[in-house]
Design a binder for these strands. Structure first.
Lengths: 267, 267
DNA sequence: ACAGATTTGTGCGTATGTATG
DNA sequence: CCATACATACGCACAAATCTG
């Protein structure tokens, strides 16, 4: 809420700039602490625009489900707390959000075998052009889409991954069915960009929305890559939390320890 | 480069949507691999717009310094690789980017003492309303602004932090001057949002640009918080790399090792 | 119950920006 | 460069719903 300067003829409509500001003010807790937004007139003065322009911004946020206006009463924030998604050695979708959402689910959109690109091959420790299986999934928390992931597996080792995922609706359990008793995250790269039209459609975002993108490599107990993923999180619904003190069994110091037994995992 | 669908009346002009796509395609390496963009006519066909519209997009990217057009030859990418900023227990700005950029620098914009907000107090382990020192900095790599940070320190313990930062132009060295021989990152929260007008101005971004935001807590050898920061990275210039296998001396096991000397930091 | 103030909803005319051909 | 169409932004006015004294 610190700044109110808008840019004209910047290629971004004023109403959209205002909508973006209000949305991020809400997400950061700076606006509508009491659930009520300032009146349209006050907002118009603050941003130094016409009331119509503020109304366009509000209309767009109503469409998104962020705000709700009532004639004669005011404009109110629809409460929606941002989820905190932990990035640890033991990153798991359901377990990570389990305590913040009532229900979580992941479903498959599509799956195909395809030759591995340079990037994918590098991540999975195979050769470019080797067969890989691509798995497109989307994940919900409390019925709201949260993230969309593209996963790749070594087709030689995980020929059945599509079938086992369909059975279990979980990558962790699908890998377990394929003989991977446990896996750990080796590295995560985070970037942010505008959502593609496809992600806007599937995640139910609005034009110009932002996605947090993670590219992750998961390895088995022997340190061999089993799963490479690119996940797009709706940036206005999720933040990533990195525990730099993460003390869960490190992969590199574990070869002398043998594989982890089920049940040793932290809750 | 997967998607080419543009949205009309989305509040974002077509030329800007196209400019955003081209910019992110360049950042992700999907476009202009050979340094040359497709011709304006080809781009117009791909995005299904008039050539005028493509030209507006290109003009805007030329202004930004991303592209360079030459009459009769074509449009070329000005090389600018995305920096990879490591998030580890031992996160340090200069050391982290040192091998990717020729020079890095951090300078102070402003500093004030102010009562700690709830969030800041919680992070620093003090009480809300206790005096805190806020330090606004901006960091460059090879002369290009990369990130803008707001840091907070316990004013009781680090009364001189402003002066020592001015002397050393580095938070690590400023803290060292205040008796903190070493510090470690405890946690990092990552989110993404549209850049504020102020950050657009100071980081030299374009309207509608995205910033990656990290909120980090750094602790001393005894595990006591010494530094809380909120850093905004220009999302089209930087990605964050998390090494989930990070084996740098964990804070919990480091009191017996003594402080690190300058230059001992890993490359 | 009432009047007046506040707030959102709606209509219309006009000027400028954006996109096409 | 022009003509055309539509989206955006503004200013003013007034209606409808709600709150306050």
């Amino acid at each position: 809420m610190r700044d109110k300067l808008l840019e004209r003829k910047s290629g971004v409509a004023l109403w959209r700039q205002i909508a973006d500001m209000i949305r991020s003010d809400i997400a950061s807790g700076a606006a509508g602490a009491d659930g009520k937004l300032p009146s349209e007139m006050k907002l118009a003065e603050r941003y130094r625009v016409n009331r119509h322009t503020v109304r366009s911004a509000i209309a767009s946020l109503e469409q998104e489900g962020v705000l709700r206006s009532e004639q004669g009463r005011g404009t109110f924030v629809r409460r929606r707390k941002r989820l905190s998604y932990p990035i640890t050695r033991r990153t798991r979708f359901s377990a990570g959000l389990g305590n913040q959402a009532g229900s979580t689910s992941t479903r498959m959109l599509e799956s195909h075998e395809e030759p591995a690109s340079e990037t994918v091959a590098d991540a999975l420790g195979i050769s470019a052009g080797d067969p890989a299986i691509r798995l497109e999934t989307i994940s919900d928390a409390d019925g709201v889409p949260v993230s969309r992931a593209t996963s790749w597996f070594d087709a030689t080792r995980f020929a059945d991954i599509r079938k086992t995922f369909e059975e279990h609706a979980s990558i962790t359990r699908a890998l377990a069915s394929c003989g991977v008793r446990d896996y750990m995250r080796r590295s995560t790269v985070v970037e942010a960009r505008h959502a593609s039209a496809e992600d806007i459609e599937l995640l139910g975002l609005s034009a110009g929305a932002i996605v947090l993108v993670t590219r992750a490599i998961n390895v088995d107990a022997e340190g061999k890559p089993v799963h490479y993923s690119e996940t797009r999180f709706a940036a206005d619904r999720v933040e990533l939390k990195i525990d730099n003190d993460d003390q869960t069994a490190p992969t590199s110091a574990r070869s002398d320890k043998g594989p982890l037994e089920p049940g040793r995992h932290r809750p």
